[in-house]
Design a protein around this nucleic acid. Sequence first.
RNA 1: UGGGCUAUAGCCAAGUGGUUAAGGCAUCGGACUUUGACUCCGAGACCGCUAGUUCAACUCUAGCUAGCCCAGCCA
Length: 547
Amino acid sequence: MLPMEMSSNFVKSIIEEDLASGKVKDVVTRFPPEPNAYLHIGHARAIITNFELAKMFGGKTNLRFDDTNPVKEDAMFVEAIKGDIEWLGYEPANVFFGSDYFEETYRRAVMMIKKGLAYVCDLSADDVSAYRGTLTEPGRPSPNRDRSVEENLRLFEEMRSGRIPDGAKTLRAKIDMASPNINMRDPVMYRILHVHHHNTGDKWCIYPMYDFAHPLQDAIEGVSHSLCSLEYVDHRPLYDWFVEKAEMEHVPHQYEFGRLNITNTIMSKRYLKQLVEAKVVRGYDDPRMPTLVGLRRRGYTPEAIRAFVLGTGLSRINSTVSSEMLENCLRDDLKMKAARTHAVLSPLKLTIENYPEDMTETFEIPNNGDNPELGTRTVSFSKHIWIDKEDFAETAPDKGWKRLSVGLEVRLMQAYFVKCVGVVKNEAGDVVEVRCTYDPATRSGSGFNLRKPNGNIHWVDAATALPATFNLLEPLMVDSDADRSIFDRLNPHSWNEAQGYVEANLSNVPIETKFQFVRVGYFSVDYDSKPGSLVFNRIVELKSSFK
RNA sequence: UGGGCUAUAGCCAAGUGGUUAAGGCAUCGGACUUUGACUCCGAGACCGCUAGUUCAACUCUAGCUAGCCCAGCCA
């Protein structure tokens, strides 16, 4: 069963307590992506968690683009990210940018200088690093640590004016160079970057660092619960310090949860970029990619992704969930929603000897036997039929064989029983045609029950079937050994194409339409598909206990 | 003795002193079946380890072990 809402977890408990104690009145969360990459399913977890949590408590969720580093960001991603969130089914209460708050952030920085809590530092990047100390040794104070408030004010203004080159000065928080938490050793608050910003243009040449900007942004927006991943745990003391020292009226709190990984799936932005740039994949929306655009193109539904995220829970552990879990969510979602039709992926000709050459029948059959609301469709039947190679073996391999073999009788689903009376082979000895006879008394729907077939197989009428391409997608990675290069871990068979046939009624299917191809799997119409040249992506296979 | 975080079945994950330790995925049986699907029934845990507190410990305490994170003018 698909989980429809978030089960018990530590963040939910915290919110319940905060509400009960009166510490928090309005639940406000936010999803703060940096606009520098396509979103992937790991982001989907953050999105879904933030939105569902707020929704559950009558709160709201903002989308906030964390655009404090113009050298890495690109406005193109802003629209892409908005689209992904909308596709997932969420609507942000507000769409903000970190850059909306540059003026306010600057004022707070000035305030902190006046309070003697921030200073302009002349150290180079290398020197800042050297002065910082190591994990086991304390750092040393910057030579400029005790500059006067007046001088700091003057220099900070000078930084802003544009007269100082990149990297020559920084504004630093005056905290504790001996702190065992390295984040507290006078972290940089502002750096000089003479770079054009996608929102603020050339107005600024100093940009705030994440550690300073983020808590202020949360505070300004009235965020109550600021969720982030585990690697920010060590930043929380800094977060709280900035909120307090910058005298923010609203006090947000940060809570961290573990990242979600999926087996056989590479999730880091960097690796995904490498795959695209090396042309290992066909783009960010390649149906093998774990990006939201990739999953969408492949045929994953927002409902399945939401069920997956809700079903895997939330904790302070970096988890690696089996990809089978995601696959199951897709099957579960499409089980009742998708029409079930016939497709033959590896065609083998079947000829019914006792069926008249010029006869054609049409059958009205249900689109989904478990869901009458999906209606019916008409399929044709005639002397020449395509079946799947896998459904035929000249001699049955074992007594459990439930398909067709010489001398055995199976049901062509929704049609007739056919009995194999012989085969035609080519020079190489491969079976190229199966010869059968059919029994008119066994017509589906007739109530015939005098004998049981050896199995049920799908088929399409060769006279009317449409040729189609099937993209049989497998994991990009076969090896989870993170020590090896991703290029050494690639699955050489991640993309297999099959040429086969589908029912004639699929001639005009729109892209992204989902089907269950009976006994084969769930498929979605690819973006490249068009009438006369149909392309289907296999989203997931059906489960099978057949070995 | 840098600091921090984590530890419940193969994978996720509830559980916050007293329950047969939820649930999902996976796996293995069985039933049903015009999908070897679905559905249904059944099966799995010495709760990281060791001491302790307690009538009672997955839950509290101490010690230990293992894994992950931190030394960007990235986020």
